[in-house]
Amino acid sequence: MIKPGRLIVVTGPSGVGKGTLVRLLLTRHPQLYLSISTTTRQPRPHEVEGQHYYFVSQDTFQQMVSADELLEWAEYAGNYYGTPRKPVEQHIQRSESVLLEIELEGARQIQQTFPTALRIFILPPNVAELEQRLRGRGQDSEEAIARRLERAKAEIEAANEFDVQIVNDNLEEALSKLEAAIF
C-alpha cells in the first residue's frame, strides 16, 4: 500500500527512459498525480498549456523564484524549469502521492526543500546504450548529443545520492522495480 501523501522524485540522464517509465506508471496507477513543471521555453507544437507545462516569461519565472513559489528550479539549455510548490503541497495534504520527473539539479534541491521525498534515479545499462537511445530519438544535432552524453556521464556519478537506483535495461523489469520502490 502506498504511503499517504508522498512526494516521489524520478530523475536520471536525458534519454534514459524516465518519461516512458513515468507514463506507464501513471497508466497503471492513475491515483498518482504527475506534477506539471513551469518553464520559460517556448511550447513545442504538440504541447498544451497546463497539461505538459505551464509556459511563463523569464520575468514571471524570476518572480516565482523570489516569492519562494517553486520547490526546485534549474536552468537547462538556456531555459528555466521549476516545480510549482502549491499544487504539490495541496495533493500531499489530501494524502495523494505526487510524482516529479525532473533533472538532477532539481532532484538535489528537493532533498533540501522536501527531505521526506522518495528519490529514485533511473540509470542506462551503459553509456553506449544511452547514446543509441539519444540518436534513435532523431531530434538532436551531433553537438547536442555530445553535450547530453557528457552531462549524462556526470549525472550517472550522482546515482548513489538517491534512495533507489533502477537500471532501465528491460522496460517491463524497470517498471516493476519502480512500482516495488513506490508501493
Rank of each mutant, 00 (worst) to 15 (best):
L71F: 07
Y81D: 02
Y81H: 03
E49C: 01
H52Q: 06
V48Y: 13
L71Q: 02
I36E: 11
Q31P: 02
G50F: 13
E72W: 02
T27N: 08
S57K: 02
R85C: 12
G50N: 09
Y33E: 12
R28K: 10
P43E: 12
S35Y: 05
S66W: 12
R85F: 08
V16H: 02
F55M: 03
V65K: 14
V16P: 04
S57F: 05
R6E: 14
H46M: 09
P43R: 08
T83K: 01
S57R: 04
R23K: 15
T11Y: 03
M64H: 11
E69Y: 02
Q31R: 09
R23H: 11
L70C: 11
L34S: 14
L26S: 05
Q62E: 15
D59I: 12
Y76D: 06
F55R: 01
Y53N: 09
V48L: 14
H46N: 12
G82Q: 00
S66R: 13
L7C: 15
T27G: 05
H46E: 09
T40S: 14
V16D: 01
Y81K: 04
R44D: 04
L7D: 04
S37C: 12
T39D: 05
Q51A: 06
P43Q: 10
E72N: 08
F55C: 07
N79I: 00
S14N: 13
D68R: 12
G19F: 10
Q42F: 13
V9G: 00
L71A: 11
L32N: 12
L25I: 09
V16K: 02
G15I: 01
Y33H: 14
Y33T: 15
H52M: 01
V56W: 08
P30A: 10
Q58M: 11
L26P: 07
G78N: 04
Y80L: 04
V48F: 13
Y54A: 06
Y53Q: 07
L24V: 05
K86N: 12
G19M: 13
V65A: 13
P84L: 03
L71C: 08
V9D: 00
V56N: 09
D59W: 09
T60V: 11
T60M: 12
G17S: 14
Q31K: 07
R41M: 01
E47S: 07
Q51F: 01
R41F: 02
E47C: 13
S66A: 15
E69N: 11
E75S: 07
E69A: 10
R6L: 13
R44V: 03
V10I: 15
K86Q: 15
R41W: 01
L7M: 14
Y53F: 15
K86P: 02
Q51E: 02
P45H: 08
V9H: 00
Y53T: 09
Y53R: 10
R23P: 04
Y33Q: 15
V22W: 01
T20N: 06
S37V: 13
L25T: 11
G78Y: 07
F55P: 00
G82W: 00
Y53S: 13
G82P: 00
D68L: 11
T11M: 05
E72T: 07
D68G: 12
S66P: 00
I8N: 05
L21W: 06
T38P: 06
P45A: 10
F61E: 01
G17W: 08
I8E: 05
G12Y: 00
Q51P: 00
Y54H: 07
T20L: 04
T40H: 09
Q58W: 11
G15S: 07
V65M: 09
M64Y: 13
S57D: 08
R6F: 05
